[in-house]
Simulated scan of single mutants.
Amino acid sequence: MQEKLLVLSGSLGDGHMQAAKAIVEASEICKPGMSVKVIDLMEWIHPRMHVIERYCFLQGVKHLPSLYGFLYQKTREDSPIMALLKKFRQSSLHRLMELIHREKPTVLVSTFPPASAALSLMKEKRMTLLTTVTIITDHSDHSYWIHPYTDLYLVGSQEVGEALLKKEVPLHKIVVTGIPVRPAYSQPSCKKQLREKLGLDPASFVVLVMGGGCGMIKGNFVEGLKSDQFPANVQFVFVCGRNVKLLHRLSETFQGRSNVWLKGYIDGIQDWMACADVLITKPGGLTTSEAQAVQLPMILFESTLGQERDNANYLTRKGVAVWCQEDNLPAQLKHMMENPELLQAMREKAGRSRQQHAAVQAVRQIMNLSGPAVKYGYV
């Protein structure tokens, strides 16, 4: 029987889908011809409601981040609230079962916490006996990722693996692969050639500013960049994602500034990361893992979102990023520019702590599930 992966993901934020796409690309390297299908779980279960659900989620994150952070911490461990979130209506499970019958996968993979919950519940009810794999896309041990009938957890770091052990996840169910990023991030590149290709000055200091797929870049930092405190050779590249309003606002703010580049959504962001000197971003799991893969030092927005705090704590402990409030970002950036030895140290630490070929390693672990029990630790 031909191996076929069904990857369930979600579009609440961009990282879950990016991890799923990384699995697709890595499977073409590991086993060309193997079928991998990615499905947005909420779109499949609620085809008419998923756009509204996504909009409400993003508005909540944007306007009530402190409430989101509070709820995240309150549900970090299993609780009555978490038990409700892990439940699915029977009709939703039957809808998911229709998908499984249609696609006939050999393994079920999740890069999205609600998908992990649904798959575990289906196995509990014996609606499926297929092997289920959860890929945790943040440096987090939040209880929404953890379910009794999950067969394998692929995690981003040794620390997360140890945290899962403390939550009584069996040793043989945990493998540290790194958070899966597209294989292109593991390819060697020449910064000078990339800058020439993209139209950037090879001799400049390039600052890449990203706010995730939804372009969450606030005004305080932008106002700080309008001053003349930065040298003339600094080039700023703002990636606004799908946030068209932000793109228009920044176009007005930086009108006439030749050292400011404005971009919308970029699918091949790896080239821009590989040719940058510093990345300023919110600490999403996928974006920061991509930066770590190309050894790009990071300045992280202060965030009240729980999983982003987990990521920021991990990255700052590793010495590959600094974390500060948006008001202080211009000063922090200037400090790093004036201390090249600090940037070099961060690049070296990123090189030591990154998980090379994480997506390929993840696919190999998934393919090996029918063999001997996987071994806990770095692969």
Rank of each mutant, 00 (worst) to 15 (best):
S116R: 12
P188Q: 13
V181Q: 08
L130D: 03
L165M: 14
P183W: 06
F112K: 11
L108F: 09
Q158Y: 08
D138R: 11
S116I: 04
L152M: 10
R182E: 15
T131V: 05
E159H: 10
V107M: 15
F112R: 11
D138C: 05
S186H: 14
H172R: 13
T177H: 05
E124A: 06
G161W: 10
G178N: 05
M97V: 01
K173W: 05
G156N: 13
V107E: 12
L154V: 00
T177L: 02
K166G: 07
P113N: 07
T106P: 05
H172Y: 10
K123Y: 02
M127I: 14
Q158E: 15
D151L: 02
L152C: 03
K125W: 09
S110V: 00
H101V: 00
V155A: 12
R182D: 15
S157M: 04
L165T: 01
L96N: 12
K104S: 13
L96P: 08
L129E: 15
Q187N: 13
V109H: 08
T150H: 06
V155Y: 09
R102P: 01
T177M: 03
S120T: 00
T177E: 00
H94V: 11
K125E: 15
L96S: 12
W145T: 11
V169R: 04
T132G: 03
T137G: 06
L130Y: 13
L99G: 03
V155T: 05
R126V: 07
T150K: 07
R126M: 13
M97A: 13
E168A: 03
E103F: 06
V109W: 02
A115R: 08
F112Q: 10
R126N: 14
A117H: 12
L121P: 01
M97S: 12
P113Y: 03
E103M: 06
Y149Q: 14
I100H: 05
W145C: 06
I179R: 09
T106Q: 09
T131H: 13
M97Y: 11
L130I: 13
M122C: 10
P183V: 09
T128A: 10
L171D: 08
L108N: 11
A118L: 09
